[in-house]
Design a protein around this nucleic acid. Sequence first.
DNA 1: TTAATTATTAGCACATTTGCTAATTACATT
DNA 2: AATGTAATTAGCAAATGTGCTAATAATTAA
Lengths: 104, 104
Amino acid sequence: MSEISATDGLDQLDRVMAALAHPLRRQVLLVLHFRGGEMSAGDIAERFSCAWPTTSRHLRQLEESGLVSVRRDGRQRIYCLERELLSNTVGNWLHWFKGNVRPK
Amino acid sequence: MSEISATDGLDQLDRVMAALAHPLRRQVLLVLHFRGGEMSAGDIAERFSCAWPTTSRHLRQLEESGLVSVRRDGRQRIYCLERELLSNTVGNWLHWFKGNVRPK
DNA sequence: TTAATTATTAGCACATTTGCTAATTACATT
DNA sequence: AATGTAATTAGCAAATGTGCTAATAATTAA
């Protein structure tokens, strides 16, 4: 079995932060959120001005980061925002910076 | 007057998220944080295995994002972590995802 | 002034990312 | 089976990002 392993050279924080670096991908996450967390690839793609395959690739990148999951429904692909993972991954990283250290 | 304007094509969220995409730059922020928020370029650079100019460029990118500021002190450059900007920029973005929207 | 220290900028090579069009896959309908 | 719909993968070109060495700038010390 050669699934994508939990760490694929990069760890999850790396993948998440890399995924969040592109404005379109951040926008996809927001759209997903404000539409209830689930949308088909087509519904997502039609909200963006770039070509479908371009959006499709951004979606795959989001999926590989774990920020969204995907399932089939007939001939549609339903993408699902993983809110917990987003909040935890980014929130926990940010948390390192809470509190003053060696304030001198 | 041709300083770097507040929005240089990209807005600040874009610059911050792009800056956070590289592991070394995130590591620099953490090192800065745990060493009290201020360090010279040299003290930062010697903690990383890459060549000085490489670290130097990462530092400039961090500075252009606003995540750190810099001042001269003799022949040293002192980099200063901008904790507020980090927390606010990332935290505020993350905040959009709080609460359930259209839970069905 | 000369030399040493601290750090940056310049310029190049290589890797990665991005976006496009064309081709393909998967499923549903007729 | 043939056709249509939904979406992805393939393959390419252009832009961006990364890291190196060499050269340069700025400041201090001898």
